[in-house]
Amino acid sequence: MTLMQLENLTVTRSGRVTLHPASLRVDAGEFIGLIGPNGAGKSTLLRAGLGLIPALGSSSLARLTPATRARAAAWLPQAREIAWGLRVAALVALAQNGNATAPQVAAALTRMDVASLADRPATALSGGEQARVLIARALAQDTPLLLADEPIAGLDPAHQLACMRVFADLAAEGRAVIASAHDLGLAARFCTRLLVLHQGRIVADGPPRTVLTPDLLRKVFAIRCHLAETEAGLIVQPLEGVTAPG
């Protein structure tokens, strides 16, 4: 089942093309890692795909009414600051129209390891705890598709691993996740598919073992990496920066 379809999606800002024609399909069961250097167009693709910024081309989500889109996809933006002094449980419950007893709320709190924080004011939490609460709110929306912009940024290593596992589990349950990330190792280990953006263009799309080649890592990320197959999956360890081709 296709949950998002983009056809020649193009974004221009101040006369400069920031996302060149991008086409892709997101199907149920996929965990797609959106990777690329800073400024590659990852956030732009996610936001344009949701219809949050003007774009040419088409997006199946952008065509929907806001209410219908909210049932089809949950959105986790890059910003992590919580400005409201709500209890954690009440903040997560916003995803269910404020119904704190909804089973989706309890499930999301547990999945993100914040159930013990349920009665605390969200503004009293650490930055990493706030990030996990906001992920829990997105999960509580209980949509077939989750789009997340750098969801594991600011989390400690244990919670980065746990968050990626949650996303992989969602895909295994028949939903889909597309998330931008800078940690190539975690993306390689947990994602079923990687989409590589470079200078506003999709330059690679496929399974991690196919996409993450030494040549691509050098050309796109300007790094040399150690790549190894292990029982835990593909290991990608950056070793040093290199001069990327001009």
Rank of each mutant, 00 (worst) to 15 (best):
Q5D: 14
T10G: 02
T12P: 02
T12S: 15
G15K: 05
R16P: 01
H20S: 11
A22F: 14
A28Y: 12
A28R: 09
A28P: 05
I32W: 11
I32Y: 11
I32G: 04
G33E: 08
I35P: 03
G39R: 03
A40H: 13
G41Y: 10
S43D: 11
T44R: 06
L45F: 05
A48S: 15
L50C: 09
G51M: 10
P54K: 11
S58M: 03
S58K: 06
S60D: 04
S60Q: 09
L61E: 03
A62M: 06
P66G: 09
T68K: 13
T68L: 14
A70E: 10
R71K: 14
A72H: 15
W75A: 05
L76S: 07
P77G: 07
Q78V: 00
I82V: 14
A93E: 06
G98M: 11
N99M: 08
A100I: 15
T101C: 03
A102K: 00
A107C: 00
A108K: 02
A108H: 04
R111K: 06
R111G: 13
M112N: 11
D113Q: 14
S116D: 14
A118S: 14
R120W: 03
P121T: 09
A124D: 15
L125G: 05
G128E: 04
E129I: 00
Q130R: 06
A131I: 03
A131E: 05
L134P: 00
I135C: 03
I135V: 12
R137E: 02
Q141R: 08
D142Y: 00
T143E: 03
L145Q: 10
L146A: 01
A148G: 08
E150F: 07
E150S: 04
P151W: 10
P151L: 04
I152D: 15
G154T: 04
L155P: 05
D156V: 05
P157C: 07
A162R: 14
C163D: 03
C163H: 04
C163G: 07
M164L: 15
M164R: 09
R165I: 01
V166C: 12
F167N: 05
A171H: 13
G174M: 07
S180A: 06
S180R: 01
A181T: 09
D183T: 02
L186N: 04
A188Y: 10
A188T: 12
F190R: 03
C191R: 03
T192S: 15
T192Q: 05
R193F: 02
V196D: 07
V196H: 11
V196W: 05
H198L: 10
R201M: 05
R201K: 13
V203R: 10
A204P: 10
D205Q: 09
D205K: 07
P207R: 07
P208N: 11
P208Y: 11
R209Y: 00
V211I: 14
L212C: 02
R218S: 07
R218D: 01
V220M: 01
F221E: 00
A222M: 01
A222W: 03
C225F: 02
H226W: 12
H226A: 13
L227T: 02
A228S: 12
E229Q: 14
G233A: 03
L234V: 12
E240Y: 10
E240M: 14
V242E: 01
T243S: 13
A244D: 01
A244V: 04
G246R: 15
